[in-house]
Structures are given as C-alpha cells and as structure tokens.
Design a protein around this nucleic acid. Structure first.
Length: 514
RNA sequence: GGCCCAUUCGUCUAGUGGUUAGGACGUAAGAUUUUCAUUCUUAAAACAGGAGUUCGAUUCUCCUAUGGGCUGCCA
C-alpha cells in the first residue's frame, strides 16, 4: 500500500534533450537523446527538445535544423520542442531571454549571488599571474572574491553607482564555504563534493544572457523536468546545480550521468575529426560546413535508422539477455537506466556494420525494393527488383550494394576480366561451354530447378567437375567471379538473355585469345 | 596541479563472496555452398596491481597505477 501511494505521488516523467546549436549533433549526442527518449517511453513520460543557444557567439546557421532533422531520421521524436509546441514553451532559450534576469536578481536579493564587475581581461590577467606563480587553477571563489570587484567587496554606494552608471557586470553564485554537497546519481550512486572545490560560477552574463548553468536550472524547473539524463562531462558541475536548486528553494530533478563515447583508437572522447581520420561517420547525417567541407553521416552511407539506433543503444547499455537485435519499439519496452554501464565505451565501426547487416536482413524483399526505387533511384520495375533483392540481399550490407553488386542483373557485362580467363580457361573450355550453350537452348521450362538438372546431367555426360564449366559460365554471363546461384540468375535473366550473353562471352574470349 | 568519475577477452559487455568467468563483434580453423556472401561448428582471447576483511575474493574496503572528464562572461 505504501508503495502504491508513493508511486501515485511521484511526478510524471518529463525528460529533455538540450543540445546547443553550435554545429551538427554527433553520435554521442544522439545517444544521449536516445536514452532520454527511451527512458520517457518506458515510463509513459514526455520527451522534450530544448535548444540551448545562450552563447550568441557560437551560433551556427543550420545547426538547429540539422539537429531536428537528424533526430527525426533516427525516429527519436519529441513530444514538445521547437516547431512542435507544448505547454512549456518556448523551447529555444534565446526566445526565453527575458525570463532569466529576474531569477538571477532574486538570488542576489537573497544573498545567494552577487554582482561582479571584473572584466574578462582582468580575469585573464588574474589567471595568468596565478599560473606564473605555479597555481594552475585560480578560481573566483569564497576566498578570492574578497579581493575582486564585486558587490560583496565594494562599498554599497559604489555598487549602486556602478549599476546606475550602466557598468557592465555579471552575476555570480555565492558558493558557500566548506559544505558537502551530496546527490544520488541514478547510474553512479552517491557522489559527494565539498563546496570548497566549487567556484563562484557566472550565472548571468554581461551581454544580458544567462549562462548554461542558470538557464538550465530555470528551464528544467519551469518545464517540470523530472530527470536530467546527460553526458558525464556535466558531472563536475552537477553539485553546483544542486546548490542552485537549493538557493531557489526548488526540488532538484533526479540526475543520471551517462558514460562517454570514446574513440576506437587510443583514448579520449570521440570528436568530430575522428570520423574522417578513421574512415567512419561520427554524425547521423551529412553536414556541410559554411566553408564547403563535408562531414559524412550514417544516413547517406546507407545505414538503416534502426540499425544505427540499435548500435548506439548498445554502446553503454545492455538488456541483460543475449538478445542484441532490437527494434526501436522493443528498446522502448526494455530500456532502464539501471542497466547503463559506468565506464566509457569505445566506438566500434566493425560492429556497427554488423548491426546494419542484421537489420537489412530483417527488411522484407518488398520493402527493400520500394526503398531502392524511392531513395536510390533504381530504374527497374518493382517485380524484377523484388526478385533481384531476393537474390542479392544475403550478400549485401547496405541497400545500395544490391544495385552495385548485382549490376549484371540489370545490364549486360561489357568486359571480361583477362586475368580470370588467363587462370581458368583451359583447352577444353570452349568445347564445354559450347556444349552447355546447346543444352541451355534445349531447355523448354527455363527454371532454376530444371537448369540445374540439365547442368548436372551435362557435366556427368562430359565427365567433368562442376568447376570446369560453372565458373566460366558465370564469368561470361555476369562479368563477375562471384554471386548468387547461377541457376537462379539464369532463371531471372531468361533463356534468350542467357544464351545471348553466353554467345557474346564466347566471342569475346575468342578475340582475347588472339 | 586540483576536483570528480571509471577500470572483466583486441572491442562492446554478462556475472557471482565458492562458476569450467557467459554472450556478441572481430580474428583463426573447419563444415555447407558452383563461387562470394549467408549459415553452422570449433579455437585462441579477460577479472590492472598490491594490501586488508573472510574458511574463501573477479565480486566488499583501502592504497597504487592507468585512463577519462572538468577546471571560461562555452555548452
């Protein structure tokens, strides 16, 4: 009974993914979005997108559209967000600009924050000087603030004068001294930090915008966010965020800090340069920079969104069973934060391909044919294409492989590899193939099965092995040394076409021999 | 440097105070297949190190090492 009551009094699950539009979203960000989304779905909650664009100097045109487009391709669909709407909008921080200052002022009034007039140049100077004295981390904190220019150290009338004068200022949090901040991370357990290690972070900038720290707390609170699921890089500032909630007198949401995605070689956080350097995409979709550079994406490489998502889900999470192939729907049912691992995960491009292959196999021939027509511009009738898909699917990783590797099903070969002929063409080859040509011409029902019957009878009759005829038959008809069953291929091409190709092949080889 | 976080096969990971430490990718060998791919079988491959607690630690505690993150009027 107690449990039921607790459950009923729990707040509804509302989570947000809060990217900054400073460039394309990389796969680490997509994974964070995915875990938020899955957590929301699993708990009948709401998944929200909020754009954190409080740094006007880092704004990148097109980035926000990219983020929304990429998430959409992934199937990570928000219930509330920019362009979608919702009760708690607007969902872009620059559009919420006016609401932050009163909150910052409120903290100053309550002695939880203060005005600081030090210029960026003065602060740089301070840090440089400290560094020169072998103190690499000078901080604006409870001991140093007394010797800086702020509303705590300056006389009240001067503060008033500066404010009225319109002097530029920032608002900093007044971090208390020697206090243990404790919070329970849903993935890592209890984390404790003493406030002596925390500095007086800027909450409100001199340009009239809040910093991430303030905006994040105000928005999470006003948007009724229940769980903050974000990357591990935020763990060090989480205690400060807890202090802010406390300063406002608000209940803090639950926190979960996700392990980082590491690069496949060596160590370190996966970065956008790693992709091109190591030959795999780090972005969900292609991104063209203003300078004309291209960062490649999974979508354009031919990855299926579900394969991409499946792979990402398993980078730092597992279901506790041996099942590895999941659809988005299935992930929504089994995902829990308890099964997210603590350590960083190295990204594995090889396994990514395997996920893709597995998901491709799961797509029906019919759907794949549609995909090839609609997205890859295949110019074949649907019926033939479906047959081609059926023949080629097992040896394809990407949809387009079916078209490129099965090109001979669509058009006649134009040349025959000389070195293959060199190796495989024997003295009796011409005779064997001509004999086979005659047999082919005699088949009335040109099905894979009957062709195979006739073929077997023929090699028995000529007293040779399969290899003496088959490889060359394949080479002359398809121009390739490998592929699906030649009997199936023959049936698909049809008697007339096979015979013509074989004749062409025989003449071509003859001319090569001269 | 300081603070915080992490550490099981090459990689992603399961797991327990007593297990032959399990699975997957990759690798190797073999089987199937006209070939390639698929599929199947098998193999090699891991508890970072040192103390302590304990009858017994991969598992619990501490230390060390290693790796990572943060240390901006960036997010």
């Amino acid at each position: 009974m107690q449990k039921i009551i607790n459950k009923m009094s729990e707040k509804p699950v509302r989570v947000r993914f809060a990217p900054s539009p400073t460039g394309p979203l990389h796969i680490g960000g997509v994974r964070t979005a995915l875990y938020n989304y899955l957590f929301a779905k699993k708990n009948n909650g709401t998944f929200i997108i909020r754009i954190e664009d409080t740094d006007q100097t880092r704004f990148v045109s097109g980035a926000q559209d990219y983020i929304m487009d990429a998430l959409n391709w992934c199937g990570i669909i928000p219930t509330e967000g920019p362009g979608i709407g919702g009760e708690y909008g607007p969902y872009v921080q620059s559009e919420r600009k006016d609401m932050y200052r009163p909150y910052a002022e409120q903290l100053v009034a309550n002695d939880k924050a203060y005005y600081a007039f030090d210029t960026p140049e003065e602060l740089d100077e301070m840090r440089d000087r400290a560094k020169a004295m072998n103190m690499p981390n000078w901080q604006y904190n409870s001991v140093t603030r007394t010797s800086m220019k702020n509303s705590l150290s300056l006389p009240a009338d001067e503060v008033k004068r500066r404010l009225e004068n319109g002097d530029p200022y920032v608002i900093r949090i007044k971090m208390p001294r020697n206090f243990d901040v404790r919070f329970e991370d849903l993935i890592r357990g209890w984390v404790t930090v003493n406030t002596n290690n925390l500095d007086d972070k800027v909450l409100f900038k001199s340009d009239g915008m809040p910093t991430y720290h303030l905006a994040n707390i105000v928005d999470d609170h006003t948007m009724a966010i229940s769980h903050v699921i974000r990357g591990e890089e935020w763990l060090p500032s989480a205690p400060m965020h807890i202090m802010l909630y406390e300063a406002f007198g608000w209940e803090a949401p639950r926190f979960a800090h996700l392990p980082l995605l590491l690069r496949p070689d060596g160590n370190g956080k996966l970065s956008k340069r790693d992709g091109d350097r190591l030959g795999f995409p780090v972005f969900p979709c292609d991104w063209h920079t203003a300078e004309g550079e291209l960062y490649s994406g999974y979508r354009e490489k031919g990855y299926l969104p579900e394969a991409f998502i499946n792979m990402l889900a398993f980078l730092g999470w597992n279901p506790g069973t041996t099942q590895e192939i999941f659809s988005m729907k299935e992930l929504e049912e089994v995902f829990t934060l308890e099964r997210v691992s603590k350590g960083g995960a190295k990204f594995d491009p090889e396994k990514t391909k395997w996920f893709q292959q597995q998901h491709l196999k799961a797509v029906s021939d019919d759907q794949l044919a549609d995909l090839l027509i609609n997205q890859y511009g295949a110019k074949v009738d649907k019926t033939s294409l479906t047959k081609i898909v059926h023949l080629m699917k097992e040896r394809a990783i990407f949809p387009q492989d079916i078209l490129t590797e099965g090109v001979y099903l669509l058009e006649r070969p134009t040349e025959i590899d000389a070195s293959s002929i060199e190796k495989k063409w024997k003295d009796d080859s011409a005779s064997l193939l001509n004999g086979w040509l005659e047999k082919l011409a005699s088949i009335s029902e040109f099905s894979a099965h009957s062709i195979e019957e006739v073929f077997k009878a023929y090699i028995a009759e000529r007293n040779v092995g399969i290899g003496a005829v088959m490889f060359l038959f394949r080479l002359l008809v398809t121009g390739h040394g490998a592929g699906p069953s030649m009997f199936e291929i023959s049936e698909f091409l049809g008697k007339q076409e096979v015979i013509e190709r074989l004749k062409w092949g025989l003449t071509t080889v003859e001319s090569m021999k001269k």
